[in-house]
Design a protein around this nucleic acid. Structure first.
Ligand SMILES: [Zn+2]
Ligand SMILES: [Zn+2]
Ligand SMILES: [Zn+2]
Ligand SMILES: [Zn+2]
Lengths: 148, 148
DNA sequence: GAAGATTTCGAGACTCATTCTCGCTTGCCC
DNA sequence: GGGCAAGCGAGAATGAGTCTCGAAATCTTC
């Protein structure tokens, strides 16, 4: 588990290499994401840090995404969700996605399975002249609160 | 490979069990999706079948999705894409997603890998009191046309 | 430290994919 | 054929996300 100050260090470095500052607002966003135990919607971020204006949060999340600090999770839910990238947290993981309330939970899979999957996906990519960057695995279903 | 008339039969059955008719418009949509070699955007569907009005196509795709005939694919791209469900085509598969143009390609993975993955995901779901329905695997990257 | 240059901020206007409305048409049932 | 429920489609409405632009903050140079 990486510490909050380490997260800030990495964020500072990533933003720096993209000629971007690590402003107070951006720091608040990163902190909110680092403290949350699941990916946050925009509203989740601004509720965690009510000082943040909505439009600035949208803009800064885009900047943080561009710099590789933040990852945008798009599901069928209306609101996108955000989390720190694996480059920042150092932990490769995947998601459980609730079709009812949109909740997203993090899970990890065995390394050997990740390896097998990576190989198969690369083979499929080559067959389609596709250049794979990373994979995404979601288990779609119902969370505890939404179960019948 | 399932035939077009079989697809229509299944669609008719699925819609029937949801008290929905299989109208001419819905038939055209299913046909467009069945003939396409990759998931289609709404615009892709109406361009394939120009008789279709936009608002009706949105409505009918929602009905077809509710009936389990059509599957909506949401990515970071602006436009959602649609394909026939695996219950209709009988072929379990996953996707290569281009981050640049939004293109989505179908790929299949080895059965043994699918089994392993299913087991690991079910274990992760149980740990989180999550009820998994199905999984989704995407390889995110760049398609042939968008490669540098 | 001050002036000027550059970047960021944020309230509100704007965009546009998707959904909703509602009068009209289609097709099923008696 | 008449009645009626379902479907149709043009256009209005919605709303998440983006853009605008003057104000505020931060950096640069002297
Ligand atoms: Zn839920
Ligand atoms: Zn995650
Ligand atoms: Zn592409
Ligand atoms: Zn597919």
């Amino acid at each position: 588990m990486i510490s909050l100050s380490e997260v800030h260090d990495v964020a500072l470095r990533f933003l720096g290499s993209h000629d971007q500052r690590y402003t107070a607002n951006r720091r608040l966003i990163v902190q909110a994401l680092a403290m949350a135990d699941a990916p946050l919607t925009i509203d989740g971020v601004t509720e965690t840090e009510p000082m943040l204006a909505l439009s600035s949060t949208y803009r800064n999340l885009a900047v943080l995404e561009e710099a590789g600090v933040v990852h945008r999770i798009v599901t069928s839910d209306d609101h996108a969700r955000f989390e720190l990238t694996e480059d920042v947290t150092g932990a490769h993981h995947h998601h459980l996605v609730c079709t009812d309330c949109g909740l997203v939970l993090d899970v990890t899979l065995p390394d050997e399975l990740e390896d097998l999957l990576h190989q198969s996906l690369e083979a499929a990519a080559k067959e389609n002249s596709f250049a794979g960057a990373h994979h995404r695995i979601d288990l779609i279903g119902l969370c505890q609160s939404c179960k019948p």
